[in-house]
Write a protein that binds this DNA or RNA. Structure first.
Length: 255
DNA sequence: ATGGTAGCCGCGCTA
C-alpha cells in the first residue's frame, strides 16, 4: 500500500497534474489539502475515471480536503467531532484495515496572532480526537500539511526561522504531543538526504535555492511502523510549470 | 519593517 499526501493549492488548477501523477506513481491512497473547491463542483468524475473512489470536504477559496483510494473508502468522517469548525480541514476514512486521517493544519500566520491561537487550539483538539481514534483503530495513519517543521533538520535556515511561525516551540511541542500518543514520523524511520523539504515559498526562487521547510508529514501508529518500507518526498511535481508550492509525500506499508 | 509569488475573489486576504 502506497499512501500519499499532497497540498495541491487549488484542485481546479492542479487537476491535470494530479491525474498525471496518479497515472505515473500509482498511489493506493492520496490525501489532498487546500483543494479550495466547494463540494458541489468537486471534479469527482475525472478522479473516478482514473480508478479512485473519492471523498471530499471543501469550501470556496480556502482550505478543503479530499481522500482518494483505489480500494474503496468506508466510514468517512468530515471534521473533528470534538472541535466544531466551519473551516474544512479534516477528513478521515477506512481503507481495508487502515484508518486514515487527512489533515490540513491551520497555518497560524504569525506567532501571537488570533490565527496562531486558533492553530494551537485546533491541534489540542486534534490530539484529543486522535487519542480516541488510536484506541479504536490501532492501525492508523495521520497525514497531511501539518504546517509545522518538527525540528531544525526540517528548516533550510534554522537561525532565521527560530521562534517563527511553523517553527515556534509551542507548535513543535504540539507536534511532539501527537507523536506521544503512539505515532511516528515515517520520514525519520529511514536515512534521508540532508535538507529534505516538502514546501518552498513561491517567492524569491525558493525552490531553485532549496529554501524550504518539511511541513508535510505521514505519521504512522506504532502498530504500523514495523511494516513501513519507505517514506519519501516527491520533488518532481514542484519542478513543473505552475506547480503547487508543496511536493507530495508518500509512504509504503506492507502487510 | 517589508517585499517577493500564487490563487481566489473582486481591487484584499491567505498562504
Amino acid at each position: 500500500m502506497k499512501v500519499a499526501s499532497w497540498n495541491v493549492n487549488s484542485l481546479k488548477v492542479r487537476l491535470p497534474q494530479l491525474l498525471d501523477w496518479l497515472a505515473d506513481r500509482q498511489p493506493d491512497v492520496v490525501c489532498l489539502q487546500e483543494t479550495k473547491v466547494e463540494d458541489s463542483v468537486f471534479p469527482h468524475a475525472e478522479i473516478e475515471a482514473a480508478g479512485y473512489a473519492v471523498a471530499f470536504s471543501g469550501q470556496k477559496t480556502y482550505n478543503g480536503v479530499a481522500m482518494l483510494s483505489r480500494h474503496g473508502l468506508a466510514d468517512v468522517v468530515c471534521g473533528n467531532p470534538l472541535f466544531p469548525d466551519p473551516q474544512k480541514r479534516l477528513i478521515a476514512a477506512t481503507v481495508g484495515d487502515l484508518r486514515i486521517v487527512c489533515a490540513y493544519v491551520p497555518n497560524g500566520q504569525e506567532v501571537g496572532s488570533d490565527k496562531y491561537d486558533y492553530k494551537l487550539a485546533w491541534l489540542e483538539a486534534l490530539e484529543r480526537w486522535l487519542a480516541e481514534m488510536l484506541a479504536a483503530h490501532p492501525r492508523l495513519i495521520v497525514t497531511g500539511d501539518f504546517n509545522i517543521a518538527p525540528d531544525d533538520r526540517d528548516v533550510h535556515n534554522p537561525k532565521a526561522w527560530e521562534g517563527k511561525i511553523l517553527c515556534s516551540t509551542p507548535e513543535r511541542a504540539a507536534f511532539q504531543r501527537l507523536l506521544g500518543l503512539g505515532l511516528k514520523d515515517s520520514f525519520r524511520l529511514f536515512e534521508q538526504p540532508e535538507k529534505s523539504f516538502s514546501w518552498w515559498d513561491y517567492r524569491m526562487l525558493g525552490f531553485q535555492k532549496n529554501l524550504g521547510l518539511r511541513i508535510d508529514h505521514l505519521l504512522l501508529s506504532d502498530a504500523l511502523t514495523p511494516h513501513c518500507r519507505a517514506s519519501t518526498i516527491d520533488r518532481e511535481m514542484r519542478k513543473r510549470e505552475r506547480p503547487s508550492d508543496h511536493a507530495p509525500v508518500s509512504a509504503v506499508i506492507e502487510g
